[in-house]
Write a protein that binds this DNA or RNA. Structure first.
Length: 779
DNA sequence: TTAGGGTTAG
């Protein structure tokens, strides 16, 4: 750490210096003395303009006055600084600053007889391992600005794979895990933070401070931190970081493209353009190398038996007993299950009575235990919280017919369990506030009666299934979306008629194929009418590996419509990865609006990028342009969906064709539009199933060919969404309950059409379901 | 000093 601006303002500089350094008296700055681990401190009384020496290196000269020897005949000394250190020092130094030097070389001063200063001078340079600590004098003008503007020290940051036991270092890292500050069993707050950096080495830091604001303000995994003066120790064979004297931290949101605004643990800090660049580079690295979960769960999305982080507002709080405490919170969405209400004395409930009543159908009770109680008690009603690792537990009370969901914040700090208070400046809070203000409370009050219905359709247990079946005996489980005026036709009549024709039928679903529902998803080309299987991940991985053999072509980087970053992996393969971020109006967009192209990425890396960015297009370089990969690879990834093109019908164009969409006023990055400009005829995800329908007169095999209307589930999403797969399975269980006799099966109302398929050998009539959907209360 | 990451069991 060659040049450090320790602090601006008053204070004791010694407490911030590395402990191994001892102060040296001016009188002892003589040849023959050992100055290792010594520092000299003086006030800057004179400095010369930064100049270059004959060999081109920078040179900066400073005169220091020794305050301890003010009345001596000789009380000043020349400091000669060479190289980059000279440049860095010249930028930040002001007269009157306290200047501390260590690791210097002492030599006879050739000008001692002329300037009346000390007989020796001190020489410093980065190469010689010198260190300079500048303890700035309070600035008299615009002091507050100076304090937060980049006044320019030069810190050295140690990569996590270069940490050594017993050192004090500065470092950057991406938060891989953290425990929000909690009350330790000692006297301090504690926060545990695990960092990782592009060296792929992890460092777990144990941070203590009596003042919770002095600990890093980390709100989520993926945040980036800058630690200054963290002690490194070895513990259990691994390096460990721990707070020591002078520890300070800055925390940044880790999302690529968001403003780089530090959250500081101290009032005064330095932050410069170069450090901004570091943050931006780490963001890009993290985006493709770390799995950072997507948007946090909302109450509307909770399911029983899971742990999740909830961003919410505190509406009320109450003591329950010695080891638990109640928090009433809301996030504007409605939990789809009945939620438990923790019984408390009305007089113990703190919060606006009117608000508590208004929000009664949207608030949930979170019971926090043990070590979290103290922090929970101190929370202010109205504040915004993130509660980490809440447990949703399904339970039934003795006097209840249906089960409910309980929210517990169990004791302990495993998995980062805890409570964090978010400031109103936090982007998630701003978003939440705007949403809360838009919530129509009249709607939520009408929802009271809805919970049990929603519960029925989502809880997958025998009782619920039974009640559905009883209902199914009376009403059809599918309904027509059109042609209501048509009369039903018996299956026998249909079988005896010529095609093509259209019919309304009432029948039961005896069986269906495929029984493994994921096998029903195919890719369909509406141009050539071909159907194909959805490629599996291995095919794509293989194509990616093949394309990574060719290194990105740097001549294609940073064009008028995209910015490029490239780096080399640190493993043995030394793989080169390039990411091209498409710009709009010459600016990068928010990640959720951004389309990027990646070269040289692995399946995992591509997949991770899709979690954070709107669109990802895997590409490779040619001499002249970026192009799409093999036509068997997806040409676009959006969210969980891979978009494929038809090999027969597509004529791929160079990637630069995309720039026309980038230039649009509001590029929507619709897959169909992207496909069109890239010369791709997109394949569509479809459900293809064969239903065997029966009525009193006969049986008929009917095909279901559906994008999303029948199940009200998009075929494109089913392969990557377990929840939707379960939902589809439950729907099929309703339509065709396993193990039932024909009489007990529910009725389906369908609209079908017959059509002819002829080839040289034979003629056949086929039947297909149309304009039919699963009834609303079955889904 | 405290905690030193890897879910409670109310």
């Amino acid at each position: 750490m060659p040049v450090q601006l320790l602090k601006i303002g008053k204070g004791n500089s010694e407490t911030l210096l590395p402990r191994h350094l001892q102060k040296e008296n001016l009188k002892h700055l003589q040849e023959g003395f050992d100055h290792t681990n010594k520092y000299f401190q003086g006030i800057v009384v004179l400095s010369y303009p930064l100049t270059k020496l004959g060999d081109g290196t920078d040179f900066f000269k400073v005169v220091l006055q020794d305050l301890d020897n003010l009345y001596s005949r000789t009380n000043s000394i020349n400091i000669l600084i060479h190289g980059k250190m000279a440049e860095d020092c010249a930028k930040v130094l002001h007269h009157g600053d306290t200047f501390i030097v260590a690791g210097f070389k002492l030599a006879k001063s050739p000008t001692a007889g002329l300037d009346g200063r000390h007989g020796c001078h001190l020489e410093l340079s980065e190469e010689a391992g010198s260190a300079i600590y500048i303890y700035a004098k309070p600035r008299t003008t615009a002091a507050s600005e100076t304090a937060s503007l980049p006044v320019a020290p030069k810190y050295v940051y140690t990569p996590l794979n270069h940490l050594k036991d017993g050192t004090v270092v500065n470092l950057y890292g991406v938060v891989k895990f953290f425990k929000p500050p909690y009350v330790s069993k000692g006297t301090d707050y504690c926060s545990v933070v695990t960092l990782v950096d592009p060296s792929n080495v992890r460092l777990t830091c144990t941070l203590f401070n009596g003042n919770v604001d002095s600990l890093p303000k980390i709100y989520k995994v993926g945040d980036i931190v800058r630690f200054h003066r963290i002690k490194i120790r070895e513990y259990n064979g691994q390096m460990q970081g721990i707070t020591g004297v002078g520890f300070a931290s800055l925390t940044f949101d880790g999302t690529v493209g968001t403003p780089v605004v530090p959250r500081s643990s101290s009032k005064v800090y330095t932050f410069m353009d170069e450090e901004q660049k570091t943050i931006e580079e780490l963001r890009v690295w993290a985006a493709s190398n770390l799995s950072i979960s997507g948007p946090a769960a909302k109450l509307s999305g909770v399911r029983p038996m899971l742990f999740f982080d909830l961003t919410c507002q505190l509406v009320g709080k109450a003591k329950v007993d010695g080891s638990s405490f109640l928090l009433k919170v809301w996030d504007g969405t409605k939990c789809p299950y009945p939620t438990w209400k923790v019984p408390v004395e009305a007089r113990d409930l703190e919060g606006e009575k009117v608000v508590l009543h208004q929000l009664r159908n949207l608030t949930v009770d979170v019971l926090v235990y043990d070590n979290h109680v103290q922090l929970a008690k101190s929370l202010k009603v109205g504040s915004f919280l993130r509660i980490y690792s809440i447990h949703t537990k399904q339970a039934s009370a003795v006097d209840e017919d249906v089960s409910h969901i309980e929210f517990h914040l169990h004791g302990g700090t495993c998995y980062g369990r805890g409570i964090g208070v978010l400031p109103e400046s936090n982007l998630d809070v701003k978003e939440l506030k705007a949403f809360l203000e838009s919530v129509d409370l009249a709607d939520s009050q009408n929802m009271e009666s809805m919970s049990s219905v929603e519960l029925d359709s989502t809880f997958n247990n025998v009782t619920d299934l039974e009640s559905h079946l009883q209902r199914s005996q009376q009403l059809p489980v599918t309904v027509l979306t059109d042609h209501q005026d048509l009369n039903n036709t018996e299956l026998k009549t249909i079988l005896n008629s010529t095609a093509p024709q259209q019919y309304r039928i009432r029948a039961k679903l005896r069986t269906y194929k495929p029984q493994k529902l994921y096998q029903s998803i195919k890719l369909y080309c509406s141009k050539c009418n071909s159907l194909q299987e959805v490629p599996d991940g291995d095919d794509f991985d293989f194509i990616l590996q093949g394309s990574a053999v060719t290194a990105p072509n740097p001549e294609l980087h940073n064009t008028s419509w995209y910015d490029s970053v490239m780096w080399t992996t640190q493993d043995q393969k030394q793989r080169k990865i390039a990411i091209h971020f498409v710009k709009h109006d010459e600016m990068l967009q928010q990640p959720e609006d951004t389309l990027l192209m990646i070269e040289g990425g692995t399946l995992k890396e591509v997949w991770k990028l899709t979690k954070r960015f709107k669109c990802v297009i895997p590409v490779r370089s040619t001499e002249d342009d970026l192009v799409l990969l093999d036509p068997s690879a997806p040409f676009l990834l959006q969210g969980n969906i891979k978009y494929y093109g038809c090999k027969q019908c597509s004529t791929p164009k160079p990637i630069k064709s995309l720039s026309s969409i980038a230039a649009e006023q509001r590029p929507s990055w619709e897959p169909t539009e992207i496909a069109q400009v890239l010369g791709i005829v997109p394949l569509q995800y479809v459900f293809i199933m064969k239903f065997t329908l029966v009525d009193a007169t006969g049986a008929l095999n009917v095909y279901l060919f559906d994008y999303e209307n029948f199940f009200q589930i998009p075929a494109s999403e089913i392969l990557t969404n377990n929840f939707l797969q379960q939902k589809m399975q439950m729907t099929m269980n309703m339509l065709c309950p396993p193990g039932r006799k024909l009489d007990d099966l529910p009725w389906l109302e369908c609209f079908i059409k017959s059509y002819n398929v002829r080839d040289a050998m034979k003629h056949q009539v086929y039947y297909q379901i149309f304009d039919t959907t699963v009834a609303e209360d079955v889904v």
